[in-house]
Amino acid sequence: MDKAKFNAKGLLRNQQVILLVVLFAMAAFFTSQNSIFLTNAVFGNIISDWVPLVLIAIGETFVIISGGIDLSVGSAVGLSGIIAAFSMRYFTAHNMTDNLSLTLGLLISIGIGAVVGLVNGFLITKANMVPFVSTLVTLGAARGLCIVLTAGGPIADGPSNAIDLSVPKVGPFSYPGVAVLGLVIILGLFMHKARFGRYTFAIGSNAFAARSAGINVNRHLVKIYALSGALAGIAGMYFYLRLGVGSPTSGQSGELNAIAAVVIGGASLSGGVGKLLGTALGSLILVTVTSGLIIIGVAANWNQVVVAILIAAAVFSQGIRTLGKKNK
């Protein structure tokens, strides 16, 4: 009896297992309401929403584990996508091939995102601003730039094959989707198996200890925010592929969805704790709710309510598990 009880407890302590159970329960529920849910087409829709969210949520996971917060990811998505759209419009007007133009667009998008992240990093480490404020500054600045540069409208006339790339080709995954999945796995290894992640956890757990252990905390923080920005840049380019235009509202409120995914995934906002797999599953749950509610025909406004409940449940279960640990 003891052993069985221990195992059950152990499983329930594992946030990833809980998330998988939640995910399957949701899929079963949506399927019971409308059997069309269990089709590759719906999975394709879900994955195409998951790709940009998981990108910014992973960046956010690194930041939150380090004890910070990045409110600028959504705006970085918008700005990088817009600048890439302007660049690709220019390339296309100058007869560059679509593929070359898209490749350069991706690099530019990553670069712009990384610049937003570097600005965050420098505001935090050099100007000694708390992450909440410094990324609030860049949130406003980047989104403002989006609107100013585009005058509010979408930017078109880029490579004509952009939208084709967003079409599912490998099961529910588009080719860029497969690449992002690979990137998620690689970043997971860097978070949990490599020094980069170890320093991130150490800083979030006890920055003083990290510093006295000889870790260059400021330099590492700048790297983390730059990574978060660069991932937002990839998401910005992905939105361009999906919409075929650079939209100034892309990524709007993305930071809140990203933070929600991270929290549902089991990371602690006080730093030092988190799992990339949790974040990946958390994002998947969020986008599954969105698509599922549309498929079963529940007014989309319920989406936010369901997400709110999920966040509350995640934090509550985390609290229970930490209590369990402390009582031991």
Partner: peptide, 21 residues
């Protein structure tokens, strides 16, 4: 019917799902 909150990407998600449904 669905609401996009002025975000083209959300509008895109809505339409993708309708086309499936």
């Amino acid at each position: 019917k669905a609401y996009s909150q002025s975000d083209s990407a959300i509008a895109n998600t809505n339409v993708n799902n309708w086309l499936t449904k």
